[in-house]
Amino acid sequence: MGNRNGGRWMGEINGHTVLFLFFGILTCLFSLAVVFSANVVRMAFYLILALAATSGLHFLAGADFVGTMQLVLYVGGTLVLLVFGVMLTAQNPFISLRTAGGDWIVAALVGGILLVILVPVAFQIGLPPQDAGDIEGLTQREAVASSEPVSVPTATRIGLGLLGVPGDDVSGYLLPFEIISIHLLVVLVGAAYLARAKRKVVVRQESQNIAGS
């Protein structure tokens, strides 16, 4: 990697990089904050920020449709649901449930091992090939290593892909799309059914008598 670390790259530290650093660091920071926070409401808040920062990373990667979907569905939908759940169950004894020390050690161990495995893999996979001649598409790669986050319309092609029209960089996904639609419907019905616990409560009825009279 040393051979790439020349003055040539310094000039390419640009707005894109700065923004990436901003969002990337935010994402990592808030993900870790989720782990280390004990208060469940704050965890939810950190999660919101982490996922919002992730959508920023999506934008930087040129996936603006996915980034927006992340904001709409994940941050705006799923997490509101989650926060709702948190607030419904946020009674004092459950806001901060402490984890035993032993659990932390085991978890840290497992997490550390996972990280140690993942990071080198990231380097191996993510790096551009050392030898320029090896891969045919190199010139293309040089071209796409763009310096500014150029907005490329992706929504149309994604939409066509979901409708099962394959393109040059997208396959047809009609069947998965339909399956997921059905799945969503099933989940909606299921969730609504599950959440309706059969708790019976007695209420007085005077007011209704009055209303009726």
Binding site: F45, I48, A52, F59, D64, F65, T68, M69, L71, V72, V75, G76, L79, V80, V83, S151, V152, P153, T154, A155
Partner: peptide, 18 residues
């Protein structure tokens, strides 16, 4: 200039609820 601007505006505005 995002080409999913409509979507983006609505999405970000929806975050105000938090």
């Amino acid at each position: 200039d995002i080409n999913v601007a409509v979507f983006f505006v609505v999405a970000v505005l929806g975050l105000e609820v938090f």
